[in-house]
Nucleic acid binder design. Structure first.
Length: 644
RNA sequence: GCCGGCGUAGCUCAGUGGUAGAGCAACUGAUUCGUAAUCAGUAGGUCCACAGUUCAAAUCUGUGCGUCGGCACCA
């Protein structure tokens, strides 16, 4: 006699086992119609499952977030049925729901093309219209393997073989079609609705391993209703307009060309943006007690062998040789071994620790061609890199200091939201397990002290130590690691760094590898997309354009621009023979934050009409006021704080 | 690196085997104009590269390079 507790706290008792659908019907016909699935004691389940014991039950309706995930999961099943109906011989593998949609991986000799989408979508709509109920069945393990193997579904058979013995094998039928699936599902294929769209095809390795066969993946998006789908598609279209590659061209910031794949040609405006960010970071680092260094670009392979990089990353390093010397040099892919060399010059004392050594280090890595992406994933980049040499006791306070600095920098640059991941020991690593135990424990403790909330990213640490990853999201929804902090007990030992302690004995320092931006290139890409090219005044490469209305005002426009430049602002005059409407349109499209419009009136009264990007109203100020207002506003946030 | 799409004027794109096109930008001239496109004219092309098929290739085939989307990788 199960007693069902509902979310409002009320309890309903039933004679014997009941299904979720029964319970919903008992509560009311409205709920019976709306309920798609349920959570029994917090576990999502099909509505058709029976409840035999006392339990708390929450019904999932279309409005719930859980429903969205189920719509997408069910849509994946509908997609798989449609594809197998249209393309006999195609094997199914897996098809989960993902953020904003779903995908299904198929094994088929011929790849799919977006041209196949209309036919597949039409078939999917048929299946949805039939509203076949999802029927759950529990199968015997061996029978299930035999069944799928017998149908030529080798991947499914393999999936079942690899399930743990304790796992119940469940099959979901939708009419004549069926799939191995853990569930749960909604009531029937009709609940998927029609607000879905196939979006792209892609190759994907079976089980995510590049040594395995490549499958054909079809991605789709699915929503509660057409309105939500339209809103999502509109958002995607808007996001494409923020793409840093597009804005980089539109604003004339940089370009990349075939003769230097993975390297950036920075144009004057882009380079000004870069230098503004670099100057800001340099000031912040100096204020935080870092000392800046510069180390060689070409370093003999012997150093990389000692550090362990040669073994792990040799094929990703650019190698340089010269004819009359029998040496192999590597273009540095990172700065840490060089920083250890500086640390090793002379005898270090514990009194010098923590020693914070920073470098805007230009690094080269031969990244796989498929990984390149605009300026965010390149082969030549500059890190805001630093290594903190410290004692074990200093790991936690230094981590806390670093995280506080990173938060402040990100806030200055407009990023309030970012995610932190804790990446622990990878399979291939240097250093013994006890060293890793200590490093991971130290970093965990440091996170606790610094009040850092993180998600675990298992097995993704650097080969020499665990790391924190600070992740930002681009306009298209892709996540990028920018900041990082890595605890390293291994390199100081491999490269023999030591200091004299209070006890006058020699000790190994711990190294904290850390970066806030990560690489200037990647961070600038994110920054461009985050602001959609509309930078705050202090970052904008062109801050003010002084536009003349008539040629009589041109000399005054030149004078205003020169005055602003004299005050340290990036200002140019636009005295072309164009209508003011055209000038405003052009500079607005170029994301110039401030337009100063001057006609005869302003020239006579020595005033300017200021117009802000995105606004339609104007403010009339004297030239002196204009300089004061804009100079104040263009002050970088760290210098502004110092003034106040 | 792997799978697939794409590569035509500075940019966005049209052109399915028979003499390379449009809009915007550029340039020239006219226009002196008050808050998101003034008008007219001119010029602009190894159709990514190489090889092949064909009387004939931007168009078909192959190879390479680049790029885009995923996957894998990211010290």
């Amino acid at each position: 006699m199960p007693a069902i507790t509902l979310p409002d706290g009320s309890v309903r008792r039933f004679e014997g086992a009941v299904t979720g659908a029964d319970v919903a019907a008992a509560i009311g016909p409205g709920l019976a119609r709306a309920a798609l699935a349920m959570k029994v004691d917090g576990r999502p389940q099909d509505l058709a499952r029976t409840i035999a014991h006392d339990a708390s039950v929450v019904f999932i309706t279309r409005r719930d977030d859980d429903a969205l995930e189920m719509i997408r999961h069910d849509a994946a099943h509908v997609l798989a049925e449609a594809v197998q109906a249209l393309y006999p011989g195609t094997q199914v593998t897996i098809g989960p729901s993902i953020e904003n949609g779903f995908y299904y991986d198929f094994a088929r000799n011929e790849p799919f093309s977006p041209e196949d989408f209309p036919a597949i979508e039409a078939k999917m709509r048929e299946i949805v219209a039939r509203n076949e109920p999802f029927v759950r069945e529990e199968w015997d393990r061996e029978e299930a393997i035999q069944f799928f193997a017998g149908r030529g579904e080798g991947y499914k058979a393999q999936l079942i073989r690899d399930l743990p013995e304790s796992e119940t094998i469940t099959i979901y039928r939708q009419g004549a079609w069926l799939d191995l699936c853990r569930g749960p599902h909604m009531r029937g294929t009709g609940d998927v609705g029609t607000a879905f769209k196939l979006t792209k095809v892609a190759g994907a390795y079976w089980r995510g391993d590049h040594r395995n066969a490549m499958l054909s993946r079809i991605y789709g998006t699915a929503w509660r209703d057409q309105k939500e789908l339209d809103a999502y598609l509109h958002q995607v279209a808007e996001a494409e307009k923020r793409d840093h590659r597009r804005i980089g061209r539109e604003m004339d910031l940089f370009h990349i060309q075939e003769e230097a794949v993975g390297s950036i040609f920075w144009h004057p405006k882009g380079w000004r943006l870069y230098r503004t960010l670099e100057s800001y970071m340099r000031r912040r680092q100096e204020a935080a007690g870092y000392e800046e260094v510069k180390t060689p670009q070409l370093v003999d392979r012997s150093l990389w062998e000692r550090s362990g990089h040669w073994e792990s990353y040799r094929e990703h390093m650019f190698i340089a040789t010269v004819e009359d010397e029998d040496k192999t040099l590597a273009v540095k892919p990172m700065n840490c071994p060089c920083h250890v060399q500086i640390f090793r010059q002379g005898l270090r004392s514990y009194r010098e620790l923590p020693l914070r050594m920073a470098e805007f280090g230009a690094c080269h890595r031969y990244e796989p061609s498929g990984a390149l992406h605009g300026i965010m994933r390149v082969r030549a980049f500059t890190q805001d890199d630093a290594h903190i040499f410290c004692t074990e006791d200093q790991v936690a306070p230094e981590t806390a200091r670093f995280v506080a600095m990173l938060r402040s920098v990100y806030a200055d640059l407009g990023f309030e939201n970012f995610r932190i991941k804790f990446a622990d020991r990878p399979t291939l690593r240097a250093g013994d397990d006890s060293t890793w135990d200590r490093a991971e424990a130290a970093l965990r403790e440091a996170c606790r002290l610094a009040d850092v909330d993180y998600t675990l990213n298992p097995g993704e640490g650097a080969f020499y130590g665990p790391k924190l990853e600070f992740v930002l999201r681009d306009a298209i929804g892709r996540d990028w690691q920018c900041g990082t902090l890595q605890v390293d007990y291994v390199l100081p030992s491999r490269l023999d760094a030591e200091y004299v302690g209070e006890d006058s004995a020699r000790h190994r320092p711990v190294m904290l590898h850390r970066a806030i931006l990560g690489s200037f290139e990647r961070f600038l890409g994110i920054l461009i997309e985050h602001h959609a090219g509309r930078f705050p005044l202090w970052l904008a490469p062109v801050q003010v354009v002084v536009a003349s209305i008539v040629s009589d005002a041109a000399p005054y426009a030149e004078e205003v621009a020169a005055t602003l430049r004299g005050a340290g602002l990036q200002a140019t005059a636009d005295t072309r023979n164009e209508k003011i409407n055209a000038k405003i349109r052009e500079h607005s499209l170029a994301h110039v934050p401030v337009l100063a419009v001057v006609g005869r009136r302003e020239a006579e009264s020595r005033q300017v009409a200021l117009r802000r990007l995105g606004g339609a109203d104007q403010t009339i100020l004297s030239l002196d006021e204009t300089v004061a207002v804009l100079r104040e506003e263009a002050t970088p946030p760290d210098l502004r704080a110092a003034i106040m």
